[in-house]
Design a binder for these strands. Structure first.
Lengths: 343, 343
DNA sequence: AATCTTTTATAAAGCGCTTACATAAATTTC
DNA sequence: GAAATTTATGTAAGCGCTTTATAAAAGATT
């Protein structure tokens, strides 16, 4: 494979000139630049990335760390981040935490320390104290998205407010009997940022003076089947059924809609359903939701990180806690309406 | 940040010993190894990856190139590949082609040439002649999965056989009126390997002596909503409706099931439905399908690539065309049954 | 024509590791 | 116990680029 010396020889200049010409820098005559470009093209030369990195200290590579990749929210985030990064000349190295504790440890201990990435995009991960320490030791910008990261910047929607917004919509329609499908509250590492949406929900109920039936606050695994079976359970006894369900995610809301239909009931006539996310399938299901514009969010975060990286001022690149709240909005479709009992 | 010299100084040995000790190589005394390990731990030292790469020529990094990431098949492949790679000490760099033609060109022209990856896992991509050329010039192992790659190894199921298998199942149940939801056949770059499943379907019909109503061979975009609306169309006229639908993917099959229910009909009593994939949601929908065990497939391919990379014989690492067929099997659940008209 | 600027090109010094080769220490063999 | 062998350690030469200091060429100024 051709190296910089081959190009220099063919173009009849020094390697320094080749380097400058190809990097688009000053102090290269037009004539030399053309010769170099022609030679590089002829040899199919592309500068070795590791040599570039070793010489400059720059990787042009961003690490993305997320707890799953085969879920809509994460896959969508990832796809948008990748496109944005490629467009700006950056590679994306994926670190996926779904492989269990040992793998998670390996990623934090061995991989992140290798100085292979210029910065880190951390999507909805909840690092432990040790992991936080590793992150800080990296001395590289870290940007949290989909949830805050201690001691680092973050861009995330306010899960509490989003949950409150959704529930307030239901209340404003006249619903008083409102169920919630939320998340597990297991170990710290498993803690899901989205669980805060339930807190917002509860706050909205409290402000409206509504006392909730404890059976209507259900834990669920954020999947369609999970929500489906929970709903069957929830609506099993018609005398004690809610008139509306707020789900912490659209995927669960879709499961709820399916279950309602399966029971021979109708959405929104018999049960109103609202979720959070604006999932790609939500429009199809006519689901009312809180739109968190995942793609724009991912793009904005990625661009922000790139700006931080480009900043000449090293002080700016030092991490500081600087949370930016990503605005969300209610998106009313056809899955929510006034409760029938009110009519 | 600590470098190898710092560790050497602290441990009271030379950098060569540090390198050998940390790489777990021979010719290091137990005493020295322990001193080095202690020093490395104290300083939080991890070898710089670019220096390692420059010195050894190895990246310990695999490129994964795929047309989408926010679809179940691809996201699942990706997640499994990542876990498998991390487990074996490799990073994963993602190249996603969904960003359009310009981005695709950029990836092939600029990124792949950077010698940043040791090998490439190409998931269901159909490279053009030029792109194939780039791939070959890389002089790195390439393994196709989810579809063959010219001049390279591949591990993939036989889409033709899978389509045939699914349709034969329907025929063996007594169905003669069978529709198919398949893919677009647009430009070469957009060509979807999964479209071959339709060819297998047609072959099965032909062998059974069935002449298909041309209106029952429908193009569809491999999504749930797409299949939903196609099905409404297909079953709109009951006098001219098929008794079974074979879908090139489970996602479409799910859309079909929803549409059938929405029309007040039942699966499988009124319409049998079968797909291909064994999507995570297929069990929930009771969908009969051709199981292609995506996770095992991804893991097998990744391990194979790693073995090729580990092989001392450089001849083995040279690419050759060596297609391995991934076996699939029929998985009958409750969405297929004998046609009612036969009873 | 001689001097001073400005522009363009080069030589060479790293970047932080690995590893072949050289050397020293420990072990075995006669 | 000396020679031969094995094992441990160190020295230094790369790996393939970028970039700083330096020199050469070209232009501008007297």
């Amino acid at each position: 494979m051709a190296g910089i010396e081959d190009v220099a020889k063919l173009a009849g200049v020094s390697t320094a000139t080749v380097s400058r010409a190809l990097a688009g820098k000053d102090h290269v005559s037009e004539r030399a630049r053309q010769k170099v470009e022609a030679a590089a093209a002829e040899l199919g030369y592309v500068a070795s990335h590791s040599a570039y990195t070793l010489a400059t200290g720059r990787n042009r590579n961003i690490g993305v760390i997320m707890p799953y990749v085969d879920r809509w929210f994460f896959a969508t985030m990832l796809e948008t981040m990748e496109s944005t990064l490629i467009e700006h000349g950056y590679d994306l190295t994926l670190y996926n935490l779904s492989g269990g504790k040992m793998q998670r440890d390996k990623i934090f201990k061995d991989f992140l320390g290798r100085k292979r990435v210029d910065a880190l995009l951390s999507v909805a991960v909840n690092p432990s104290a040790d992991e936080l320490d590793t992150l800080n030791r990296l001395q590289r910008p870290v940007l949290g998205i989909g949830g805050p990261i201690q001691g680092a910047r973050s861009l995330a929607m306010n899960d509490f407010s989003a949950g409150k917004l959704a529930t307030e919509h239901l209340i404003s329609l006249g619903h008083r009997k409102i169920a919630n499908l939320g998340g597990y509250t297991g170990s710290d590492l498993e803690f899901n940022q989205a669980n805060f949406r339930t807190l917002g929900h509860l706050d909205a109920l409290k402000e409206a003076g509504i006392t909730q039936n404890p059976a209507w606050k259900m834990e669920c695994d954020y999947t369609i089947p999970g929500a489906f079976f929970r709903t069957k359970q929830l609506l099993g006894d018609p005398r004690n059924a809610p008139t509306a369900v707020f789900c912490n995610s659209d995927e669960m809301a879709i499961g709820v809609i399916m279950a309602v239909k399966d029971l021979g009931l109708q959405v929104p006539q018999d049960v109103s359903v609202i979720g959070i996310d604006n999932h790609d399938l939500s429009e199809f299901f006519g689901l009312s939701t809180v739109n968190q514009r995942v793609r724009e969010q991912a793009k904005t975060a990625t661009m922000w990180l790139l700006e931080i990286l480009d900043d000449a001022d090293p002080d700016v690149r030092v991490n500081r806690h600087e949370s930016v709240e990503w605005p969300v909005s209610l998106l009313v479709r056809s899955s929510t309406a006034r409760p029938a009992t009110e009519a």
